[in-house]
C-alpha cells in the first residue's frame, strides 16, 4: 500500500504541439527525469488515427512501455456528443463510444479509463459489463467546480457551470453499491482544492480584457456574489469588458469547491488522481522546494496517506495555455514545471 507518482502526458501537450517531445520522449522523461513509472494519457492527444490505431502503433506502445518498465495507469477519454452532427449522440451511442475506448485502453495495457464528469450515470452503468470483461476500471472525474459533498450547492445557469450535475459523486457511489462492481469509481482532480486564481491566469485574463480593472474588481468582490449574479454585475459595471464567462469564472474562484476532509469517505472508490497544477514556484526561504500557491496539496495528501490511499497521483500541468500569448520566448518549460511538481510530491509523500 502506497501512494505512487505518475504523470499525465497532458502535461507535455505544448512540447508535443511544437514537436519538441513525442510520446516516446515524454515516457523517457518520466522514467529518467522523474524516476517513476506511472503514465496517464489523453486518448486523442497521443493515439494516431484514433479511434482506429494501427496494430503497429499498439505493439510499439506496449513494447516501449515495457522497455522502460512503465505502468499504463489511466487513459482519459471524451464524449463529443456532436460527432454525428445530424443528431445529438444518444445515451446508447455514448455507451458504444465508451465501450470502444475501454477496448482500446485494454489493448494498450491501461488499468483504468477516466470519463468526464458530464457522462450520464446510465451510460456508465451500460458499459460496466464491458469494463469487467476487459478488466479496465471506469473512474469518473471529480473536477472543479463539482463538489464531492453538495450540501447547499446552488445550480448555476450560465457558462460551462450550467452543465454541473452536483450529485455526480453520489451517483457513482450508489451505482457501485447497488451493483457491487469494483469497476466503477472516481478520479478526483486536485483542482477541487484550488482556493484562488493562479497568478498566470490573472495575468493572462488582464492582458486580454478590454477593461483590466474589471479583473481587479472581480478578484475583490467575487465572494459577495453568487455565480450567475456575479456575471450580471460585471456586465453592468463594466459594459463591453471583453471577458468571456469562463474567464470570469476563473477569476471569481475564491474558495475550494471541496474540503480536503471530503476525500476521506471516497478513498475506497478512487482509481487514480489528477495532480492538477498551474505554476510551481520556489517556496520562500526553502531553496529547491516548490509549491503551487493556489492549490492546497499538503492537507489532502496528508488525508490520503493517513487513510491508506493506494494508487497513483498523476501530475496534470495546465499552466501552459495562459502563457502562450507572449510569443515563443514566453512559453513555459513544461518539463521543468513537472519536475518541480514531483519534487513537491516526493517531499509530501515522504
Amino acid at each position: 500500500m502506497a501512494i505512487k507518482r505518475g504523470v499525465s502526458l497532458y502535461s507535455y501537450q505544448q512540447s508535443q504541439f511544437f514537436k519538441k517531445l513525442d510520446w516516446k520522449a515524454q515516457i523517457r522523461e518520466v522514467r529518467e527525469g522523474l524516476g517513476t513509472d506511472g503514465i496517464e494519457i489523453i486518448n486523442e492527444q497521443l493515439i494516431r488515427h484514433y479511434p482506429f490505431p494501427t496494430e503497429e502503433f499498439l505493439y510499439d506502445w506496449r513494447s516501449y512501455m515495457a522497455r522502460y518498465n512503465m505502468q499504463a495507469v489511466t487513459m482519459d477519454v471524451y464524449l463529443d456528443v456532436h460527432q454525428f452532427r445530424d443528431h445529438v449522440m444518444t445515451h446508447r451511442e455514448a455507451a458504444e463510444h465508451l465501450k470502444n475506448d475501454i477496448r482500446l485502453a485494454a489493448k494498450m495495457g491501461f488499468q483504468n479509463i477516466r470519463t468526464l464528469v458530464l457522462v450520464p450515470i446510465d451510460v456508465i452503468e451500460a458499459v460496466l459489463p464491458t469494463a469487467e470483461k476487459y478488466n479496465v476500471k471506469i473512474g469518473k472525474e471529480i473536477h472543479a467546480p463539482w463538489p464531492i459533498k453538495p450540501g447547499n450547492f446552488v445550480q448555476p445557469k450560465k457558462g460551462m457551470a450550467a452543465g454541473i450535475n452536483f450529485r455526480a459523486v453520489d451517483e457513482i457511489v450508489e451505482l457501485r453499491e447497488r451493483t457491487g462492481s469494483r469497476y466503477v469509481g472516481l478520479v478526483p482532480d486536485f483542482g477541487i482544492f484550488q482556493h484562488s486564481p493562479s497568478d498566470v491566469a490573472i495575468a493572462y485574463v488582464k492582458r486580454h480584457a478590454k477593461k483590466p480593472e474589471a479583473v481587479d474588481w472581480i478578484l475583490e468582490n467575487a465572494p459577495a456574489y453568487g455565480h450567475d449574479e456575479l456575471i450580471d454585475a460585471v456586465d453592468e459595471k463594466f459594459p463591453d469588458h471583453g471577458i468571456p464567462i469562463n474567464n470570469i469564472d476563473r477569476m471569481a474562484l475564491h474558495k475550494p469547491c471541496c474540503a480536503p476532509e471530503d476525500l476521506i469517505d471516497i478513498i475506497p472508490y478512487i482509481v487514480s488522481i489528477h495532480g492538477k497544477f498551474y505554476n510551481m514556484t520556489e517556496i520562500p526561504g526553502k531553496p529547491g522546494c516548490y509549491e503551487d500557491k493556489c492549490i492546497d496539496y499538503e492537507t489532502p495528501v496528508r488525508y490520503l496517506r493517513q487513510h491508506g490511499f493506494d494508487g497513483y497521483i498523476n501530475s496534470e500541468f495546465e499552466g501552459q495555455r495562459d502563457q502562450q500569448d507572449m510569443g515563443e520566448e514566453g512559453l513555459v518549460d513544461e518539463v521543468e514545471q513537472v519536475r518541480r511538481h514531483h519534487e513537491m510530491l516526493k517531499r509530501l509523500l515522504g
Binding site: D80, V81, H82, D86, L118, P120, G163
Partner: peptide, 18 residues
C-alpha cells in the same frame, strides 16, 4: 470546433443551427 465534454443545454440547438 464543436468539441465538448459531454451533454450541454444547447446541444439540440447546435444540431439545427450550428
Amino acid at each position: 470546433i464543436l468539441a465538448q465534454y459531454g451533454y450541454m443545454p444547447w446541444d439540440e440547438e447546435w444540431v439545427l443551427h450550428p
